[in-house]
Amino acid sequence: MRFKLHVWRQSGPNAKGAMEAHDVDGITPEMSFLEMIDLLNEKLLADGKEPIAFEHDCREGICGACSMVIDGVPHSPERAVTTCQVHMRSFQDGDDIHVEPFRAKAFPVLKDLVVDRDAFDRIIQAGGYVSVNTGGTPDANEIQIPKVAAESAMDAAACIGCGACVAACPNASAMLFTAAKIAHLGQLPQGQVERGARARAMVEQMDAEGFGNCTNHYECMDACPKEIHVEWIARMNRDYLKASLTAKD
């Protein structure tokens, strides 16, 4: 198979970027999308040019490092996958393929397809946890949790923190990411004590980072490789509102 790849190149955080076209040849349908870029990078390197910088690590869809937009869709037009899980058999021989970084004000480009997603870490740091120290915890089976609640919490906890939701949203909103963590902990008994404070702190941090708000496009859910559901956003809004109205501070 052969393709014409149009890739965003940007030499540094403050540099002006542009799309750059490359012909890639000798691709097989079994190759993953990233292996296709590996091959192109080998070619660039052989020509003495700088390879395309991109983030990747586990290459099995769980680490959340991939941060590419393929043909206008974060990760890929395929549903429920990260870029590393996309294979070239999903494309037609001869296709033009456009590759850009995740774009959002809160995700500045560092180089080529690499973006800075520290804002997500700061949202978790603001309150995405249960405040227990190591040691002194009760026996694990002293906390009984209905299977349905545990499974539902796991659905929300499956978020890999990649940021596709932000890149897909016309408002560059991080509400799906933030809501997923709030829903994970908020559905478990362990998360009740700080439920309101957590929702407030995380939402406020999310706003401070420059992410937009939700206007119900649901593009985030469509782009999410783990199919995190937008219903968590409604839940977050309820938790946030309730906490804001009843807060003592």
Binding site: Y129, V130, V132, T137, P138, A140, A150, Q190
Partner: peptide
């Protein structure tokens, strides 16, 4: 296991 459950790990 006790620690992780207290943290909210959804086992």
């Amino acid at each position: 296991i006790d620690q992780c459950v207290a943290q909210g790990v959804p086992f």
